[in-house]
């Protein structure tokens, strides 16, 4: 069983989580092509990815940076660090 290192609760089994997918930021403006890219396109290739994980027992969402080739959780990103960021022209973070 893989463990996910929660910053406040310590390592928890992955079966306690729902996967929330890649962090994407909505684009500025209403250009259709940009919106389609934001809605559908994904990083796809292996590498560092920022992803959402939902911890069911506590009902909390966490944001982690993970290496999707080695399956290693690199660091936890406090949600406060990103919540005040402005939308960007580039949907990929």
């Amino acid at each position: 069983m893989k463990l996910i290192p929660l910053p406040d609760l310590g390592p928890r089994p992955r079966s306690e989580f729902d996967y929330g997918g890649e962090l994407r930021r909505p684009p500025m403006g209403a250009d259709t092509a940009l919106w389609a890219a934001y809605v559908f396109n994904r990083q796809g290739a292996p590498g560092l990815l920022r992803e959402w994980w939902y911890h069911r027992p506590t009902g909390a969402w966490y944001l982690f940076e993970r290496d999707t080739l080695a399956d290693r959780f690199i660091r936890h990103i406090p949600v406060q660090d990103i919540q005040y960021e402005l939308p960007s022209a580039d949907p990929a973070v």
């Binding site: 559908f40 994904r42 796809g44 292996p46 999707t68």
Partner: peptide, 17 residues
């Protein structure tokens, strides 16, 4: 391995592995 190849030509796709 499709996203690895499409990233060689700078093509974005919705594919996830």
């Amino acid at each position: 391995s499709s996203p690895r190849i499409t990233s060689m030509v700078g093509l974005e796709t919705p594919i996830e592995i």
